[in-house]
Amino acid sequence: MTSQMADVIIRASALSKTYSVKEGRARKQVQALRSFDLEVKTGEMFGLIGPDGAGKTTFMRILCGLLLPDSGQVAVLGFDPVTQQHKIKQDIGYMPQRFSLYQDLTVEENLNFFTDIFQVPRQERSARTQRLLEFSRLGPFSKRRAGALSGGMKQKLALSCTLIHTPKLLILDEPTTGVDPVSRGEFWDILGELQQQGVTILVSTPYMDEAARCDRVALTYAGQILALGTPDQIAGQFPHQLVRIFTRQPYDVAAALRQLEILHSVELYGDHVTVALDDPVTVVEIIRKNLDKRGYSYTSIDSGQADLEDTFVYLMRQLSQATQPELGNDLDSHAK
């Protein structure tokens, strides 16, 4: 094995996968992955972001040997997950999106069950269970049934169950969806500790603040990778100048600015509107005049740095308008 190969823990090239989905009476082919290429390095925290149906879950399932790709090559820890699944099972921890554990089993019973089926050596069992309970801060709840835990605690228990065999690679499919920000923060602190211990983590998330904590991020869309790099690199791919207009009437301001054709995009936030534009000096003047004319007040107009979310939303918006007009926004129908 060359050193370069040892460096790469997941290598996927030209992966394709098509599902046949029933739609009304007809069957429709849905391409979950189209010629998907990705390499994840050992020790990395790698984030997958992208809209619903981008192929993230399909990709993760292929890595775990749960799905067969139609074509393409994939290697996980140097093995083919399809034909050599038994060689990597002990080294992978996988937490599926829907995974909700056995609700009627206690925290301890859930952990014990996974200790059993991963065949953790007898002498190590109680030490490992104790360590995980401590690590996930679930110790005081070890006798509580999983169904009675809060959302954040359930996710930590699920993670603990996937860590019981000390895997080298963790694959987590939207582990924090529906979890409150405090619990999410704690969950990611745990992931950070794991990475310190040398575990490679591949994680998908709908939260941009989580994606920003990854070493590298791949932005996926319709089964392909749209952008790949560190969060900063991706943020840097924003192709225009970004300007934020702070106002108490963001909804009205956004509706008004959408009618200006020189703007590349207009996004509504809670207390401001972001617009993508070129040549800020002239265009900001146009914006000011337009808003003044309509009598909309604003506190400031600042040019700013696009962040990961700005870029993500911008790229998605371009694509969804270009490739799937029927999925485009329905904003115009009720703009004033």
């Binding site: 749960l66 099972k89 909700s100």
Partner: peptide, 13 residues
């Protein structure tokens, strides 16, 4: 239905 089978299938069982 609950998705636990997906989890068990990736274990050595």
């Amino acid at each position: 239905e609950t998705g636990t089978l997906e989890q068990i299938l990736v274990t050595p069982v």
